[in-house]
Amino acid sequence: MDGQTKTPTTRLFLALWPEPGVRHLLAEWRDAWTWPAGAAPVHADKLHVTLHFLGALPSERLSELLDGFAVPFEPFRLDLTHAALWHNGIAVLEPSLTPPGLAALHARLSDALLALGLQPEARRYRPHVTMARRAGGASVPAEGPPVMWEVRGYALVASKDGVYTVLREYA
């Protein structure tokens, strides 16, 4: 032991966090799939659209981050209509088109990350709800209940030991 104390961290992400009615429709979509053995469907209380994954950040920065992620927001509608199985075994529900309001929110949050000295992910943003992991070979449903989500805000969420906790909702 070298005598140094490890800085406590909190695993964080920014997300569109569904209200109960939308969450119910997302769970109906998830339940319409036929999952292979070993697949890990996402529990209903964890269904969301990630805006930015932040990873483990020093917990001492939380109050700064909570304030730093308050960006201008205009409500928009997100139509999740397309079930897909990505090449890495991730089953998703995604929009056919990214609404301009979602693209604008993602860009504003990218700017907020940079202002806080954090680096946004380099890969192109693909909005989606993860339905399951390790889902290679799953049967993709042709259709499900229409999910026309009137998005009225976003959230900063902490993830610890498989439990998600909304730290702040922004509207």
Rank of each mutant, 00 (worst) to 15 (best):
T130V: 08
S139L: 13
L26F: 03
G89P: 01
T81P: 00
K6A: 15
L97D: 14
G89Q: 09
T5H: 12
P127S: 07
A135K: 01
S59K: 09
M1R: 10
P146V: 11
R126I: 10
H82R: 13
P127V: 13
P75T: 05
A84K: 08
D67L: 15
V157M: 05
L80G: 03
R77G: 02
L26Y: 02
P120H: 01
V129N: 01
L12M: 11
A40Q: 12
K160E: 13
W33R: 03
L109P: 02
L167Y: 03
H82G: 06
A83G: 03
M1K: 11
F69C: 08
V22E: 00
A107V: 04
V42D: 06
L47E: 04
A83T: 07
P8E: 13
E19D: 14
V140W: 02
V147D: 05
Y125T: 05
A37C: 10
M148N: 14
E74I: 08
L113T: 00
V147I: 06
L78N: 00
P120T: 00
G162F: 02
G153Q: 12
M131Y: 07
Q119C: 09
A83P: 08
F76D: 04
R134G: 13
R134N: 14
A107G: 08
T7M: 11
A15E: 10
